[in-house]
Design a binder for these strands. Sequence first.
RNA 1: GGGCUCGUAGCUCAGCCAGGUAGAGCGACGGGCUUUUAACCCGUCGGUCGCGGGUUCAAAUCCCGUCGAGCCCGCCA
Length: 498
Amino acid sequence: MEEIHWADVIAEDLLKKSKKHRIATGITPSGHIHLGNLREMLTADAVRRAVIDKGGEAELIYIADTFDPLRKRYPFLPEEYEKYVGMPLSEIPDPEGCHKNYADHFLEPFLESLEILGIPVKVEKADEMYKEGRYEEAIRTALKRRDDIARIIEEVTGRKLEEDWYPFMPLCEECGRINSAKVTGFDDKWIYYRCSCGHEGKASYRGGGKLTWRVDWAARWKILGITCEPFGKDHAAAGGSYDTGKRLAREIFGIEPPYPIPYEWINLKGVGAMSSSKGIVIPVREFLDVLPPEIVRYIIIRVKPKKHIDFDPANLLELVDEFEEGIKKKDRAVELSLVGDVEYSDIPFRHLVVVGQIAKWDLSKVFEILERTGYKIDEKARRDVERRIKYAKNWLEKFAPKRLKFEIAESVDPSTFSEDEKRFLRTFAERLSDDMKPEDIHNLVYQVANELGLKPAKGFQAIYKAILGKNYGPRAGYFIKMLGIEWVKNRFMQISCE
RNA sequence: GGGCUCGUAGCUCAGCCAGGUAGAGCGACGGGCUUUUAACCCGUCGGUCGCGGGUUCAAAUCCCGUCGAGCCCGCCA
């Protein structure tokens, strides 16, 4: 039986309702946006592609909650940022001074990442939406129907709202905070408030504050015409924000709530759930230097949204193997992960990691070795290797387990070699000559070992020990050729003549 | 207390939604390749599908219950 990818299942569902879809995503740019956040984007994008593949229309909207207050001074912020707590992210200066404001600082690299990942989004910044008055009607509705909204929230969550609760958070013009003022009344023109800083004032319907989270969410569905939205499991819990949003959408705003796609967290192996506030984070942008976009997409798209992902950067090779296997089999998850018209050659990433190290990341040497190891280097392969070798290098440096790395030892101590090993190295070195091919060199190991009555394995070990200080290493023939016959001879003689 | 997910081979998991003879990869074991970084090829071993009930001609799959693990329910996805 053929297995249907989860994105296709959802797309089918969506298309039963309508041909056209707007899928919403939303991440608060309060800190580095990380791999966990990315799940929302990729879940949405996989569905978008699936809908289009089935002949529908779909687009992605990314709502940046730039008007949300800074909740606390996160560990990565300087002490003086204490004073900005409670102010909207869009109104706080960039902690590193390189962008227009705090929100943009984290937003921009993220948007750059989305582009690399091939995720086309229409970006909406919440602060701008409020300031432009796009929320105006919703705010009026919400204030007028305060009692109905309160009742719904109380019914769904089982918690009691305060008498003076309003679904609106005024932005205090005195202290600049958006989470400290209480609405005291409203008329057609203004919303009146009293702030905990002591200030009393009036707020505009355009940018003078924002709706509280649960109401805001339902309101934006209406304003933007959202038909589908992935969201974290926290919102999906019974009595959570989706449950209230659903009723608010129908009963207050008169729309059908979007098709929900709850998804699970991504755990960093051995560390825990990724969370910007806890500082457990690999910023997405950084990730994309280490892995090609299609692999990053695959990490997430291969798994059903409701299953949690344990992500272990050190184990990536297996995943890449699986991906490369999937290309051949035209696996759907792989198909949904490929970006643009990238073409893969048949050279495994795993192999590039080894070859790159031998070639010391010199491209022409890389090709030389690849050809020697039997790969045909045509245009396609050339482009592919040029692209992926960079990732191999970065991955190796950042995430790879130590055993995959090797380095030429500066020097080795001859006294750590046995007589047999020395004898082997000396004989081997004497027989080495410049005109030998890698294959000849490889064969020489067997010849010499046999002549000396040693097991070939012993010979190989001696060679690696002499070059790397470890008893294993890359294929001996081309490795030695690569290093230069003279150099190897010298090293071996030096050890064996001590 | 509520919600979600998971429990299938030694390990990682697929299969469950649309019931029809238990699958893959890795590992282990055996063999091959003039061992090479977690290379390749062939083969073998390996599972009471957490447990108990129910529905059915037929259940890993659907229903009820139960045990165990993880996560989420304070406006962080």
